[in-house]
Write a protein that binds this DNA or RNA. Structure first.
Lengths: 230, 230
DNA sequence: ACTTTTTATTACCGATGGGTAATATACGGG
DNA sequence: CCCGTATATTACCCATCGGTAATAAAAAGT
């Protein structure tokens, strides 16, 4: 796709690195195509033949990059999980009250649900995975759930959130967010960011111990100037 | 199972009615077993052989009651949809402010999500259905969504609900409720009713134009004496 | 130019599972 | 007691699809 160093007289390391990178790019392309198809048609109806077809190759070629259909499914999920783990780490690093962290989590999670790999977190069925991978998925879900509960508990402890049952509250919020993965359409009326803004306010307005100003304040980290790139 | 009229000298209509009823009971039994299995293992992993096995019959016997696996799936869904349509009709009949109706809807819907046929509404994939049945399912979902939005809009109009976007608010509430169908376990810590109570308050507390008393008031219709039958 | 490795293709296997045909069995009615 | 209908069983078909040789083509290394 993009420009590669065409000079043949460069270090002997480059071609090697090139090959590794080319391979990884192909692997990623398979993953992107697969996750789209799996979301479009559902894991069981989607066939590897069709995945291959969209990539202009044939089915057995896929087995150069993955051991099985199940492994592809798992890797699709893993990408989404890594994204979530990533922004959770960022929120933890920045710190703040429980409410502030919760609002950041809601916002980032909502935006993530509007992506293919994000939606795959809630639209793929762990029962399609091997026992080993299924356990990893369950651990990931559990970890996200714990984060929601922790931020809520933190908020109650520091006084930013009204006393409530963290478990049920986390279920209510996460459920609302997870459902985005089922109805969001990129070509819909609202952008992912707009939805995330809306949900951030809607899902936390009942929790704040005292009124919160507006969305902008809590999400000021990224996108300092709206309407820029993309 | 239960007692049948053993007298052979009764009206000639009875045996006929008996047979029809017996048939319907068997059909229902298939449906109950199927929905359980489909929820347990997922539609694609669940086989008709296993459905039959649980009923102590063999697979072809199922075809006396259903034309295909897909038809069974659709009927499972239809039962859940009828239940929802039923209590929505009740809420409409009783009337009240938008907020009151919304709270009743949330409560009833939450409880329904804790049943097999209720969960099937959100855990089965419409893409497994024929085009014809898929359209019916989509119409049903749309109808439920419209009801949520209408109650919210009613509430805004009559002043019981704070101004907000009915579409997004309905998505947020319904998503939260739908997710119950994914995590609820009958043998869990909380009963379906307790969860419904909790969600009714949690999901509407941010919407009320002025503070609402308690759950009991809005759900006083059914169960006048708790701990009675069942 | 020759060899080796990587990557892809064609052709095929085999398990799974929905669905059907032929047939047996139970049962109510005359 | 026999017949017709409903209901069940056994045995089977076959389309689908994940996965695997065997092998060809392309690229890298020497």
């Amino acid at each position: 796709m993009d420009a590669l160093p065409p000079s043949p007289e460069s270090s002997p390391w480059l071609p090697f690195e090139n090959r590794r990178r080319a391979r990884d790019e192909k692997r990623d392309a398979v993953l992107r195509t697969a996750v789209q198809l799996f979301l479009e048609q559902g894991y069981h109806r989607a066939t590897l033949n069709e995945v291959a077809e969209r990539l202009n190759i044939t089915k057995p070629a896929l087995y150069n990059y993955f051991r099985s259909k199940e492994e592809i499914l798992f890797e699709c999920w893993a990408v989404g999980q890594e994204q979530v783990d990533g922004f959770i780490a960022g929120i933890n690093a920045r710190g703040g009250t429980g409410l502030v962290k919760l609002r950041q989590l809601v916002h980032a999670y909502a935006e993530n649900m509007a992506t293919d790999h994000g939606a795959s977190l809630v639209r793929f069925d762990p029962r399609d995975l091997s026992e080993k991978n299924s356990r990893i998925v369950r651990a990931g879900k559990k970890s996200i759930d714990r984060t929601f509960r922790k931020y809520i508990a933190d908020g109650i402890a520091d006084g930013s959130i009204k006393p409530c049952d963290p478990k049920m509250t986390a279920f209510a919020i996460a459920g609302s967010l997870n459902w985005i993965g089922h109805w969001f359409q990129p070509d819909g009326a609202m952008s992912a960011t707009a939805i995330a803004d809306e949900f951030t306010d809607r899902l936390t307005e009942g929790l704040a111990a005292r009124p919160v100003k507006k969305t902008a304040s809590t999400v000021a980290k990224k996108k300092p100037s709206r309407g820029g790139i993309r």
